[in-house]
Simulated scan of single mutants.
Amino acid sequence: MNGAAPPRRIWLCADDYGLSDGVNRAILALIERGRLNATSVMLVTPAIGRDAAAALQAAAGKSPRCAIGLHVTLTAPFRPLTLHFRPLDGDMFLPFPKLLRRGLLRRLDAELVHAEVLAQVDAFKDLFGRAPDFVDGHQHVQLFPQVRDGFLRAVKERAADAWVRQGGGNLKLAERLAAPKALVLDTLSAQFRSKAARLGLRFNPAFAGAYDFTRAADFGALMRQFLDGLPEDGLVMCHPGFVDETLKSLDPLTTQRETEYGYLASEDFAGLLALNNVTLA
């Protein structure tokens, strides 16, 4: 008689470590409880430094499978590490709709993107003493036309053993029609996967976690949807955090972060993982 099927191992990745102290505290608490097994770190934000990096390494060190990645940031209200990055809005990166538009119109310089991503990888190495386990992008910038060219070359040169995050999933027709954001990510990811494969870079086999942050959402219901059909090593993106003044000044996604944190910390979430035969360990 066959035994029970082994659990599916997935990645549950909290984005934006380093954005604010409140975001950092929430992510650290969830890692320590075994409710996350990956987080991606921003290097151009106010709440990252030696102490924050050490706290993250200490928390991840207690988890059997917690990856620490780089969250490449190329959009406002943040500023580049490199001196000659263009285009800018004042001294800041462009807002992401303008950056995406420039990429679609082929009006970006992939070499400048390449130099900035190299600088952010090097900053990660300086703080953590090693290359990132994976590399992704804030607001999915790594998928944008032209941006992806400079991004992937930089990862290949500085962190060739890291995997990169693509945003394509196993979307059913109804999901494609109901979730335009997920459909856009799925479309942009096709070229990203092709270019990554040609460079010999690994990437996650499937992605989930995109939803409309501008409206209050039942995160438990969304998580059930995200896990449905997600394959082994598929990735779910999340954004837990506690709201503080720094977060409110930098990012429109605020109270929904606390909703996500509350659900991920709950026994309901632990039960959902067990019900779906999913593990983070």
Rank of each mutant, 00 (worst) to 15 (best):
R102H: 15
G69E: 00
V72T: 06
A265L: 04
A174W: 15
F207N: 07
L99E: 04
S189H: 04
S266K: 02
V113P: 01
D136F: 04
G103T: 14
T82S: 11
L83V: 13
P80L: 10
F93C: 02
L171H: 04
A216R: 14
D16M: 04
D109T: 05
E32T: 03
D109Q: 08
F85A: 05
G34T: 03
D136Q: 05
V72E: 01
L105K: 15
A53D: 03
N277H: 13
V121P: 02
A210W: 03
L36E: 00
Y17I: 06
A110D: 13
D91R: 13
H114I: 11
F269R: 09
D126C: 08
R165G: 00
K181T: 09
A179D: 14
A5K: 15
R107Y: 12
A54I: 01
A182D: 06
G169T: 04
F128D: 00
A160N: 09
L127C: 03
Q256H: 14
F93M: 03
A29P: 07
A54Q: 08
A67S: 12
L99C: 13
Y261M: 10
N277C: 10
A208M: 05
S249R: 09
C13I: 08
A206Q: 06
G167F: 05
D15Q: 13
R176K: 15
A216L: 11
L104D: 13
L81D: 04
L74N: 01
T246C: 10
T73N: 15
P132M: 13
M92K: 15
A162T: 05
I10G: 06
L275K: 14
D251H: 13
Q166I: 03
M1C: 12
A210M: 07
D251V: 02
L227R: 03
A206C: 11
L56K: 02
L247Y: 05
F192D: 00
L272E: 08
G3K: 09
F269V: 05
D136H: 05
A5L: 11
S189E: 01
L183V: 15
H84V: 08
K195A: 11
M237K: 06
I27E: 05
R65A: 09
G229F: 06
A4H: 09
V23C: 12
G220F: 00
R101Q: 15
A196Y: 06
L100G: 03
H71W: 04
D126E: 12
A160K: 14
R35W: 00
N2L: 08
Q225G: 06
L88M: 13
L235T: 01
G209D: 00
A53I: 04
G49E: 00
D161G: 14
V23M: 12
N204I: 11
E111T: 08
G169K: 07
L199F: 13
D51C: 02
T259K: 07
A29V: 02
L12V: 11
D133Y: 05
V147P: 00
E175T: 08
G168S: 14
A67H: 13
D89F: 11
V164F: 09
P77T: 08
S194E: 15
E157K: 15
Y261D: 12
L104M: 15
D16I: 04
I68Y: 13
A58E: 11
L201Q: 04
T279A: 03
D91H: 09
D136V: 07
V117R: 04
L235C: 07
D51R: 12
R176S: 02
A197L: 15
